[in-house]
Amino acid sequence: MNSVPAEVWSIFVLSLGVSGTAVMVSCAAGMPMGVWLGLHDFSGKSIVRALIFTGMAVPPVVVGLLLYLLLSRSGPLGSWEWLFTRRAMILAQVLLDLPFVVGITMTAIDAIPRELLFQLRSLGASSWQLRCTLLSEAEPGLLLAFATALGRSISEVGAVLIVGGNIGGHTRVMTTAIVLETSRGHFAMAVGLGAILLLVALLINFLVACLQGRIAQ
């Protein structure tokens, strides 16, 4: 049997790795989408916006359930053999984070007046320079998107429990470990894990606040 600290450490690292990867993937995919949506006007944009905001409200267990049915060996993607693996957990969290990343990025870009773009071009900005300036103007929003995604990922339990299976050493992350320890009646361990989770969240948001403070200057 593993000693307790080693087990906690592995759960902690697994949480960070899975959620971190999910956030990176959803930012890499979602931010360009959000920027594009924020910059372009097209018919049906309000419908897209409504869909994205609905995506934010989808309960994680529902995502977990749908993903389970898809990834199950008798489901359409069963041949991937992703069920009860970290990949499935990352996929679930990416799906959960994506609406937040896209929506918040889109809103942040939308909030930049179109006239600013014209004025920047008149000052001699090439289209690439314009994009970079735009991103830096929207930086507080992008950071918010990042922090929200990370917060949602790392504290999420419903979806990863269903598609990850809470297998010790494989797919047991902090939240699912808390569920397990609670059901075992090991409240001290559960509370300890909860405290670590809280600490991580605090650290992330402190970091984001630091970054946003720098921007404000």
Partner: peptide, 25 residues
């Protein structure tokens, strides 16, 4: 060619950074 708009929108940076912007470009 440089345009000075009637209702300028400045970057959310310092005054100095705003003046420097075109030079950086």
């Amino acid at each position: 060619i440089a345009l000075v708009p009637q209702r300028p929108i400045l970057l959310s940076r310092s005054v100095r950074a705003n003046l420097e912007y075109g030079l950086l470009l």
